[in-house]
Amino acid sequence: MNLSTRQPSIRTSSPPPPLEWKFSQVFGERNSGDDIQDVDIISAVEFEKSGDYLAVGDRGGRVVIFERKYGKDTPDELYSRNQLEQLDFAFSNHPEYQYKTEFQSHEPEFDYLKSVEIEEKINKVKWCTTPNGSLFILSTNDKTIKLWKVKERKIKKANDMDHHQFVSSENALLAESSFMSEQDIPSFTNGTHPELKDNTANNAFLSHGVHAKIANNEDTTYARCRRVYAHAHDFNINSISNNSDGETFISADDLRINLWNLEISNQSFNIIDMKPSNMEDLTEVITSAEFHPIHCNLLAYGSSRGFIRLVDMRQSALCDYSGRM
């Protein structure tokens, strides 16, 4: 009995095709010959924590908000976010965004004390965490920080004004009645006129039909400024960061970092001060500052010398001690 051994076939796998990067979406695309204005240059971009909203700031002081588009083909229509996370669902399509609203956040100003013009350019935008699902966003230029609330509301607009013939006849009747004497007008005991009483039911019915034609509910989104945090920085603000406690945030310029409460706009606390007594001894400046995403007492800031310092705000009111990395 002959036994033939089969050699396992070796399959040579072809190398994977090279990755090809494509734009999934492009907003504000222009033709090659169009001139780009300086005010249209984007200066800040920030995603909301859930990824449902995107805020964009430009050099013209405007903030444009995009929202995630939910269509019939997205699994969000069938399952909630928690269910999708439990199922470990892999999204086959990239999320798409659509325009939601925009507003003018900052205007150009002039500091008469220092004779310096303050640009309207948006340096940073940050989404705030709120428990009730409202949209709050912080925006800042070189000197002033503003807190905005983005809200949706329904408004009624006149869509189609279709005058019924009863409206004209009623106006003629009122005009004719105004020139009649009291002796010529018969009346009931309650003081109403017979011609008006006969048309009372028709008036209520037809007026309802006219309002149904001209009333059109539309969803609009508007932004309202809730707080203005100003006059706290001598140098240009380069970063802002929200705390995980949902109540405070920091703002940093070249030499100082201030701690704010979202509900108090006229008072801030200086927690880091790198300004020397003699400015000639200045060796580094603050370039960026950020709160820890979980621990509300920790923050990190970077300097122009390439150092990153980690600070624990529980040690002292003025954070002079830090761990350098």
Rank of each mutant, 00 (worst) to 15 (best):
C128T: 01
A223M: 05
G191E: 02
W260R: 01
T144G: 04
G246V: 10
S187T: 06
A55F: 09
R309P: 01
K149I: 00
F110K: 06
L135W: 02
Q86M: 15
M279E: 14
V228C: 09
M279Y: 07
N297E: 11
L135H: 05
D34S: 15
F91W: 14
M1S: 11
M313H: 04
K154F: 08
L138I: 02
A212D: 00
Q25T: 07
S115L: 04
N278Y: 07
L318E: 07
P293M: 09
A232K: 11
H208E: 06
E102M: 13
S178C: 08
G28Y: 07
I237C: 02
L206M: 10
Q315M: 08
F307N: 13
Q165A: 04
I41R: 12
E96Q: 14
N278S: 14
A212C: 01
D312G: 04
Q7C: 00
V56D: 11
H163E: 05
S177Q: 08
K100E: 10
G323M: 14
Q25K: 07
L310T: 13
T189E: 02
R59M: 09
V26Q: 12
N31E: 15
R305S: 11
E152Y: 03
S80F: 02
L135K: 12
M161H: 03
Q86A: 12
N278F: 11
V116Q: 09
I41F: 06
D88K: 15
I286Q: 03
A204E: 06
I10L: 12
F269R: 15
N203H: 11
S139G: 06
K121Y: 05
S169T: 01
K100V: 04
S105Y: 04
A55S: 10
K114W: 03
I42T: 10
A204R: 10
G60K: 10
F269N: 14
K149F: 00
V228L: 04
Q165E: 06
K149W: 00
S50W: 05
V26G: 09
D273G: 07
A317R: 13
P276H: 02
R30F: 10
Q37P: 01
S24T: 08
F89R: 09
N82T: 12
T12N: 05
F27W: 09
L262N: 04
E46F: 01
L113Q: 08
M1L: 12
H292M: 13
V167I: 12
E120P: 07
N31D: 13
E170Q: 10
F66N: 12
D38F: 07
T101F: 05
A223R: 02
Y79P: 00
L54I: 03
N93E: 14
A90F: 09
S303G: 12
I250W: 05
S181W: 03
K143E: 13
P95Y: 07
N266G: 02
P18Y: 09
D40Y: 05
Q25N: 09
D34P: 00
S80K: 14
L298R: 06
N199P: 01
Q267N: 12
G28L: 09
